[in-house]
Amino acid sequence: MAKSKIIFFGVVLLLMLGAAGIGQIAKLARGQQSPVPTPSYPVHPDDQHWVDQLQELPFSPVPYEGAPILRPDPTIVSMSQAERQQLAETLRQSTTLVYVSGPETAGSKITVVGKEIQLPPDIYVKAYIEEVMCDPIPDLHCPETPIYGLYTLKEDAHVRVEANGDVYTFSRDTEAEIEQDRNTFQFVLDALDTELKIDPYKSESSQ
């Protein structure tokens, strides 16, 4: 009797351990063995610090206090279908739409090189440019992103404010137009303590 009990509980124990083991193996296969899987591709040296921070991120779909701000690669966290649906519903009910380009941004504040700039009511962000792809032409100026394309609502003056704080006028044919850009956006130049630069490139045709 004692022998059969031992065999019986042994079988039960093995089944339990097997079940737990299979679960862990499956989790390992899904990459949950550590908070963040190690990238399988070469990491650009400039990005290594992001990867280092990434290793500290917990496996959780919910941001935690003090979570590091990371670049999107490598990508990291996953959510279940139920979590995804719940979040989508929460978003539908609780999010606020924020315009970063378009007339709605007139009179808003922008931040460039850590400096906050208040736009007048008649000036808006026509384009918040997150990425640009430039042709590799010598002496062609490829701006740092993100870029704010600032325009008057009347569109009679405009400048490009680049991520490093440089302010450019562009696509201008006359000194009068350049002067109008300078005068209109003098508050930006003052805030960033810089002079207006001229982008000489003019596209021959957009099509």
């Binding site: 440019i129 990425e131 430039c134 042709d135 100026h141 490139y201």
Partner: peptide
């Protein structure tokens, strides 16, 4: 604002 760009994402 960036006429020299081949493409951009806004």
């Amino acid at each position: 604002t960036v006429p020299a760009a081949r493409a951009c994402f806004i």
